[in-house]
């Protein structure tokens, strides 16, 4: 599955260059470097409080790096507002989905397209979301808060697609979903990727993440300790022990 295309500057969609992020005195990301190429699914693995969510917040502009640069499509974006980043083509799938509970599914999708003009493209995007998720179409007049977790995740992914993004940042897409839904969601993520959208995904479920990712980074207490193709990482003994092993123990319990 990993692509053998050589990496050049023009291939890079998102880049972290020596990014350092602080919460007050707490140093969260320490000289972190990522390079995500167009068309890839890249997964970010790590335990609790390792800086995964901070990475997502740094990409979306909720947290600003103290030092270092974030490049999107070759241009620095670390000073831009969240809104400006969404306009440039970065859309989030938020942790725990975060649908607007008292808005309908359709209105939630509209919110995903908030930075875009309403027109024929909106309708195309809507049709695309409905064809990827027929269930979302069925539920379009229901309030977001009344859906099951899996349905909410479909709407959350659809909402991100409505921004017509070049990069989707997913924070824990499998969290709280039944194994059946996790399979479905990951199939859809691959399908979206095949249709041309780059995906950067934070995921606790390392086995699942490595099964669809082209490459992955491993973050530990704010430092990238390992990176490589998904195939390489799956074979790496320390990964097997720390992430894949741990998961099997959880599954058995």
């Amino acid at each position: 599955m990993p692509r053998e295309t050589p990496s050049t500057e023009a291939d890079l969609l998102l880049e972290f260059k020596s990014v350092n992020t602080y919460y007050g005195d707490l140093h969260v990301l320490k000289d972190v470097n990522y390079a995500i190429r167009r068309g890839e699914i890249v997964s970010l693995l790590g335990g609790n409080a390792c800086g995964k969510s901070t990475t997502m917040k740094t990409i979306m502009g909720v947290v600003r790096p103290t030092r270092g640069t974030v490049l999107f499509d070759g241009e620095p974006i670390e000073r831009l507002s969240t809104s400006a980043r969404v306009r440039r083509g970065i859309a989030p799938v938020l942790e725990a989905r975060r649908l607007f509970p008292r808005m309908t599914v359709f209105e939630n999708l509209e919110m995903g397209a908030y930075t875009r003009k309403r027109g024929s493209e909106f309708n195309e995007d809507l049709e695309r979301v409905y064809s990827l998720f027929p269930r979302v179409k069925e539920r379009r007049n229901q309030l977001g808060g009344t859906l099951s977790g899996g349905e909410q995740q479909m709407v959350a992914i659809g909402r991100a697609l409505m921004a017509r993004p070049r990069l989707i940042c997913m924070d824990e897409p499998s969290m709280g979903l039944s194994p059946l839904f996790v399979e479905q969601v990951f199939d859809i993520i691959q399908e979206i990727n095949r249709q041309g959208t780059t995906i950067f995904m934070v995921e606790q479920n390392a086995a699942m993440a490595l099964s669809i990712a082209h490459r992955a980074y491993v973050l530990q207490t704010g430092v990238v300790v390992l990176s490589g193709t998904a195939a390489e990482l799956k074979e790496n003994p320390s990964i097997r022990e720390a992430y894949l092993g741990e998961l099997q123990v959880n599954a058995a319990a």
Binding site: V86, P92, R98, P101, T115
Partner: peptide, 10 residues
């Protein structure tokens, strides 16, 4: 309903 999520929508 959710200010942080709204901000993330732009």
């Amino acid at each position: 309903q959710d200010p942080d999520a709204a901000r993330m929508m732009g």
